[in-house]
């Protein structure tokens, strides 16, 4: 009972933080609310059992992204970081709730969470769960999938991060320094 109340409260906080992020008038406040939104999202991931994803969300979304936004905002004048929001167009006000209702309607057809007969749980997950220790001799299935079965993915991911760093240095750092 308490557990269900906790989850409902968590989802309510998540939705509140997400709406407040783009309803607030100042960009600085928006950045901080976005960081708290990432924390709530990390709690949701942890509730769903995806601890690795929760860890990354907390560290990247709430930690590094907030710092990057803040450092960018330090360089802008106060008049640029205060927003004047025009009233939303009528099509958006009417269309977005309709889209939400449509998505909720479609979500009815999804498999229930944690159903052992759902396609994601019968297609390839059992193979990983049953054979990964014999194949890779690593006790943690997540590590064996990430670094062993899909080592190339991780390698290319690292290349992407490296490229992003090089591109940022080229764009932002002035020549001769």
């Amino acid at each position: 009972m308490i557990y269900a109340v906790n989850i409902a409260l968590l989802l309510l906080l998540l939705v509140t933080a997400a709406s407040a992020t783009f309803l607030v008038k100042e960009l600085m406040s928006s950045v901080f609310i976005l960081g708290s939104y990432s924390f709530f999202l990390a709690l949701v991931w942890a509730w769903l059992g995806a601890v690795d994803v929760a860890f990354v969300e907390a560290v990247i979304g709430a930690g590094l992204a907030t710092v990057l936004f803040l450092i960018t905002l330090f360089d802008t004048a106060p008049k640029d970081s205060r927003l004047r929001r025009p009233p939303p167009p009528l099509a958006g006000v009417l269309g977005l709730p309709l889209l939400g209702i449509l998505l909720l309607f479609a979500a009815n057809d999804l498999w229930p969470f944690g159903d052992p007969t759902s396609p994601p749980n019968v297609h390839i997950s059992p193979v990983y769960l049953q054979q990964s220790f014999a194949d890779t001799l690593t006790p943690n299935v997540v590590t064996s999938v990430l670094m062993d079965y899909r080592g190339f993915d991780t390698l290319i991911e690292t290349v992407v991060i490296f490229t992003a760093g090089i591109a940022c240095a080229l764009l932002l750092r002035e020549p001769g320094r």
Partner: peptide, 17 residues
């Protein structure tokens, strides 16, 4: 790789003025 890239991006953002 991630640590050096992160520091590089933050330093470029903080000191590009």
């Amino acid at each position: 790789d991630v640590a050096v890239t992160g520091i590089s991006i933050v330093l470029s953002l903080a000191y590009h003025d």
